[in-house]
């Protein structure tokens, strides 16, 4: 069984926001990249499915050569190969990313696609369901439990929602996006990292895919959110805290 797993290299979440904004605007290159954590959960899940007959795990990433190390680290966890789509310096939005991934999905015809639920830089949380919408496939987002039915034509998933865990029975092929509690991603070992250099890589260019070049959404600018106002008032003990809260009319 073949499955596709998407991986996005993102700025290290610990990057100071001002430095991140500068790098997004192309003003400096001092940002470290890591594989999006939610995508590592998706890769881990794919590897755990090897026992269930998954024997071809293909990583799909829309990224340029400079972030190959992050893609390799995902392959080295135990994937078989990768397809890379070079954006050729374009700043692609969620729709175009999904359209590019859809191109690979149509060609590869996987049993299903595993993705992260969101990219920790854009916090868009869009590419998965857009892809499902483009393909007309069923979708299950924010998945924290997943198991196959007997003939592997469907999966039963638990989704993390505001109301609780929602259990759905989903027909394959489908787009599934992974939430934090699905698993704990493994680390790639050094020997596997070295081996990953030999994994087959198909390289495509965004401009070759026949996707509309016009962006649906563009970035007009950045700002830093207003910090929380003023100083922290330190209190000495519980009774001073209660007195302060009463004085501020926050409690009766």
């Amino acid at each position: 069984m073949k499955i596709l797993v998407t991986v996005k290299p993102v700025a290290d979440p610990n990057t100071p926001p001002a430095a991140w904004i500068e790098s997004e605007q192309g003003k400096s290159g001092s940002v470290n990249y890591v594989a999006n954590y939610f995508d590592l959960i998706a890769v881990e899940q794919a590897i755990q499915f090897k026992d269930m007959g998954v024997d071809d795990i293909c990583i799909v990433s829309v990224t340029d050569e400079s972030k190959m190390a992050q893609v390799r680290s995902a392959i080295a966890m135990g994937a078989n190969r990768a397809t890379l789509i070079d954006p050729e310096d374009r700043k692609l939005g969620a729709y175009q990313l999904a359209a590019a991934i859809a191109h690979v999905v149509k060609k590869e015809q996987p049993a299903f696609v595993l993705m992260g639920k969101q990219a920790t830089d854009d916090d868009a949380s869009q590419v998965g369901p857009i892809l499902a919408g483009i393909l007309g496939w069923p979708q299950a987002t924010f998945v924290s439990q997943i198991e196959f039915n007997d003939d592997k034509s469907r999966v039963k998933v638990g989704r993390e929602t505001d109301e609780g865990v929602e259990v759905l029975d989903v027909k394959l092929p489908a787009v599934i996006t992974c939430d934090l509690r699905l698993n704990e991603p493994r680390y790639a070992t050094l020997p596997n990292l070295i081996k990953s250099k030999k994994a087959p890589m198909e390289r495509l260019k965004f401009s070759e895919l026949g996707i509309d070049e016009n962006p649906r959404v563009t970035v007009e600018g950045y700002s830093l959110p207003k910090g929380r106002s003023g100083e922290t008032k330190m209190v000495a003990d519980a009774s001073e805290l209660v007195a302060t809260l009463k004085e501020m009319k926050l409690v009766d």
Binding site: S125, Q126, G128, P129, I130, G133, Q139, F142, E163, R216
Partner: peptide, 28 residues
């Protein structure tokens, strides 16, 4: 979690641009 699930699907189905979690409008 509902809108985060169906709005982007709608974006895919309608080929429309989407912004998530908008906290303000501004004129540019």
């Amino acid at each position: 979690t509902t809108a985060r699930d169906f709005f982007p699907r709608l974006a895919g189905a309608l080929d429309a641009g989407m912004c998530r979690g908008v906290c303000g409008l501004t004129q540019v």
